[in-house]
Design a protein around this nucleic acid. Structure first.
Lengths: 234, 234
DNA sequence: TGACTTGATGTCAACAAGACGATTACCCGC
DNA sequence: GCGGGTAATCGTCTTGTTGACATCAAGTCA
């Protein structure tokens, strides 16, 4: 190990999550050039002169996927800089978690042609599913999302402007990979102050009773929290 | 803004917390050279060739304070890279949170002469107390510590090998800046499985009844969690 | 010995959570 | 139009957790 500081290229990588067909999906791109050509990877790119990290994340989100980062939930997760993590040399990567509603498809954009939603394959994740150390990055981002569903109104970021309690429950079930009791969930969500507010409208589902529509409330923290079940207490 | 990627120098900064005289304190150094010469700052330094971030954090912890990072709780918090945050140019900084028991004093080391424990001044924090953007970094690290006390056995990292329930309570009170009911706290802590285990020993305080000594348990998460009070529920 | 201080255990009421019964309001096919 | 299927919504019961607070225990000190 040298005694001198190293110069790094600084990149950001995006773990963009959504729910599609009731399953948790991540936006992946197919790498068009080496290293890892043809492999699936998280979208991302280098920080430019005069840009801050959030700015880079918003720009890459738009360039690579056509999504508008200012409308999405976007938060920094952590930074990866292990020697050798990028074959091109000293590249540090700042991971971001983004949450998007179920959009029809990655909107066409500059490089968006290579982008696609992919259901998260928990089997292959951690086993070389993605290029670089993106398995690790995605796993950490997922854990952040799972944890934050408990105490922040993050789940509404997966939904459209208005949503039903059932849709919100589907978010929790997809992200946590558990089944939740619809009745208890309904009681809990509507009991948390400022989480959701009824719009007065209703929506007719393909089957079953019409559901009341809700809009995201102004709470930034959930009280009481929506605790994950199964997190066994002895 | 240029279209090209920038090269960054990559640094880590350490927010090292402890409890002294029942108050939360942070380890600061006095800067010996520009920029911000003579000002108080968080200890830190540049990532070297072949080093990973955790390694840099451990090395700087030892060099600047004489503390052994492998024995302390140490975790990455987040990364700061806003343009202009460092007058020397493009420097990205990865913030780390470290938790230390109340050690007599920053042990003498290479640069440790300039290091000192300083009670956290919540008034001046955020108002240019520290050099660079270290006010922000410290604030974010503090918030991480506060939040993590709820669901992780982090509080024991502030204590020595063995500790009393009262000492543990003092940690929560200092970090959260609240008063806790000793009786309810005792019940809660001893009710969380794997948080603390009794050693069978007792310790005689300067005054009052002797307290049972405990050791950190093997839990990595707390169930049920030690929720912050005052986080009002309606 | 009694005053004082801190630790440890207990009680009670309010509240939150899991399990699950029952009712409501749509669609569909006959 | 009617019954079956499905999902939303409301209610009940039991158990566990929380906050407020009384009480007792076991040391030090004057």
């Amino acid at each position: 190990m040298s005694d001198r500081p190293t110069d790094f290229r600084l990149a950001i990588d995006l773990a963009i999550l959504t729910i599609r067909d009731g399953r948790l999906a991540v936006l992946l791109i197919e790498r068009g050039k080496p290293p890892f050509e043809g492999r699936a990877a998280l979208p991302g790119g280098f920080v430019r002169d005069g840009e801050d990290l959030d700015g880079t994340a918003v720009r890459e989100l738009s360039e690579e996927t056509g999504l508008d980062g200012r409308a999405l939930h976007l938060e920094q997760v952590r930074t990866y800089a292990a020697p050798g993590r990028d074959p091109r040399g000293a590249v540090a990567s700042v991971a971001y978690l983004a949450i998007a509603p179920d959009l029809p498809v990655p909107v066409a954009g500059t490089d968006a042609a290579r982008a696609r939603w992919e259901p998260i394959d928990h089997e292959r994740l951690g086993d070389g599913w993605l290029a670089f150390d993106h398995d690790t990055i995605l796993r950490d981002a997922l854990e952040r999302a799972r944890a934050k569903l408990e105490y922040a109104p993050l789940a509404t970021a997966f939904c459209g402007e208005t949503f039903t309690i059932g849709e919100l429950r589907a978010v929790y079930e997809a992200v946590w990979q558990v089944d939740l009791d619809p009745r208890n969930f309904h009681r809990k969500v509507t009991g948390v102050s400022g989480f959701v507010v009824p719009t007065g409208e209703r929506r007719n589902p393909p089957t079953g009773r019409p559901a009341a529509l809700y809009r995201r409330g102004d709470a930034t923290m959930l009280h009481p929290a929506m605790l994950r079940p199964g997190t066994a207490r002895r």
